[in-house]
Write a protein that binds this DNA or RNA. Structure first.
Lengths: 343, 343
DNA sequence: GTTAGCACTCTTTTATAACGAGTGCTAAAT
DNA sequence: ATTTAGCACTCGTTATAAAAGAGTGCTAAC
């Protein structure tokens, strides 16, 4: 569909604009060594590329910038899987250098490094605990009225919630109660806990414990997991350095959007596994229409755990970011699998 | 030291500037109804106030704005304890409307409401767990190599940490170990845990458990509390709407500073109990030299728990914010005392 | 098919002037 | 002895115009 020359010109324009953030003109293009034809020829090609919808002008006599369709094409067809810079490799590896133990810490550090490396904003979702299996339930009474329910999963994730004790319950009952829960529920994935409690455990409890139901509903309520997986951010303010956001309305909208965790959660979470690129309006949110979002998923063995994402301007270093995310998500998956698979 | 007329003029200037963010001129002042003298008189007084260091000009022929010294004087001497708006009272009360249980939730909601009410940034530190008393230690083994240590305090605070199990330890030993810890350490304030473990518990353990020391040091290490109390923020991006921050360098520095949790932690934490106002350079941080920080502490009974703070431009609604913080911190203290004092 | 040349467009920069809000000072009024 | 009216002056802001510069589209020559 596009001639080789058009491809070449298009690619150079995109690369140049990604680097400089300035519209690219025919004259400056003609001076590049990889381009051998005159500025007039380039102008003709550029006009064609614009007609095809790959380029845009900011005003009648300006140079060209890539359109969203252009970026999409660039990402889909012009991005050769590029070798990652040795420095970048080192930086990513440094995440795993210390023998970090908790998943969350690892994931948090990943977010930090990613944002420093790219100078964009990084967002990491996870790790998902939905499919974690229950390791232990504990109940710690605080006083006559309240107690804490604690659950621990096989990956070391701990969740806790305070609840009211039914009046008049005694410690022996609580202990029995917990023992029954542990007997019946250990090994059950968190997402099935709630239904399992009512379907299978309630009956057993009823036979052993007076007034079990008040407590059971308190507990079941407390354990209404999955708790939203947490989001971790890195470099929230990095976008302030991007020239396209030297505009108070834009930056305010964007930062406000980022602060709004529930929305971000939905946006990140809806991405399918593997690498994913959403460009500009594809994000479906007006605050992000000058942004691109690249996501990658990570997993333990084949079980998808979470998502790493980079949010940058549409004029983003797609190639490098994609390589980075690919590399990091693979490494993260490997590390986590090694840590938690070897039960 | 200052005449009544000077006080009046000064107060009106500050109030006006706080409202409008515009330098205040003599003519516009003379038109206010509370001011009965001519603009020329006002000019003379303003010149004197400037000489005394309470006012500044932005350029030779501009109106006046309050200097930092001026704000300091205003806060220290001109602020009458003002009645809080009925709306504000309602909003603050709404924090306690739902019967919230966990301290952290309460504190988080306070941060949110405060920032919405003021359109400044709110920062809440706490609640401190240093003096919380240990209620229970649990150890949950995950596999042969790792286990989770969980501690629960009398206020329902839960902290957990993963640690390595010494090779070859058996479950019976772990159980004994935990029982001894609980016997000896229940009721001990978190901040004393570490020393107590080594001084009093180590010996007992040594008599009952083989290879106790490897595990003890893992655990003690894990429990190296107090974990920094957490910071909660509200309205991080609110400062973007303040006209004094319509400057990319300033806003970037400020937001970056805010993101840097450790620094913020120190800044908030160092404030003594009660209401505290830091104006501009008094904050000692260049990123905050156009800001004022107002802090208030909250407590359970007489034990100080944490700090609520509002970060705004130096041109801040001091009177209203101080009233708000005073009111909220009192209410928060009362609510928490009621919840947790009645053990 | 390619390219040199040129008129034209539009932004950015620079210069200049006009405006206006505000001051400080002097001299008159109270 | 204050207070105030009056006025010259300052300086930032706004408006206008002109010049510069980067880039385009089109035509005609190569």
């Amino acid at each position: 569909m596009l001639s080789d020359r058009q491809l070449l010109i298009f690619q150079v324009i995109v690369d140049d604009f990604i680097r400089s953030a300035q519209p690219v003109g025919s004259r400056s293009l003609s001076k590049k060594e990889e381009i051998q034809f005159s500025s007039a020829t380039i102008r003709n090609e550029m006009a064609d590329l614009e007609e095809l919808g790959f380029l845009e002008k900011t005003h009648t006599s300006s140079g060209r910038i890539p359109s969203e369709k252009g970026y999409r094409f660039y990402v889909d067809h012009l991005l050769s899987p590029q070798q990652l810079d040795a420095k970048d490799v080192d930086s990513v590896r440094s995440i795993f250098a210390e023998r970090i133990f908790e998943m969350e810490k690892l994931v948090q550090k990943s977010a930090k490094i990613l944002s420093e490396l790219t100078n964009y904003t990084s967002i990491v979702l996870g790790p998902a605990v939905r499919e974690n299996k229950l390791r232990r339930i504990q109940i710690v009474p605080l006083n006559n009225e309240a107690a804490i329910a604690i659950i621990v999963t096989d990956t070391g994730y701990v969740e806790n919630k305070m609840f009211h004790l039914p009046p008049g319950i005694d410690t022996g009952d609580i202990e029995k109660f917990v023992n029954i829960l542990n007997e019946r529920l250990t090994g059950v994935p968190l997402e099935e806990l709630n239904s399992k409690i009512y379907k299978e455990v309630a009956f057993v409890l009823s036979q052993h414990i007076r007034s079990y139901d008040a407590m059971l509903s308190s507990i079941a309520d407390s354990l209404k997991l999955p708790v939203n997986e947490r989001l971790f951010f890195g470099g929230k303010t990095n976008m302030l350095s991007q020239p396209e956001f030297h505009d108070f309305v834009k930056i305010k909208n964007l930062l406000t959007m980022i602060e709004h965790e529930e929305d971000m959660y939905d946006i990140i979470r809806q991405n399918p596994s593997g690498i994913n690129v959403k460009i500009g309006k594809e994000n479906g949110v007006s605050a992000m229409e000058d942004c691109s979002l690249i996501t990658a998923t990570y997993s333990i063995a084949s079980e998808q755990l979470g998502t790493i994402a980079i949010l940058g301007p549409t004029r983003m270093e797609y190639s490098r970011v994609i390589s980075l995310l690919q590399f990091l998500s693979t490494d993260l998956s490997t590390a986590l699998t090694k840590l938690y698979q070897s039960k």
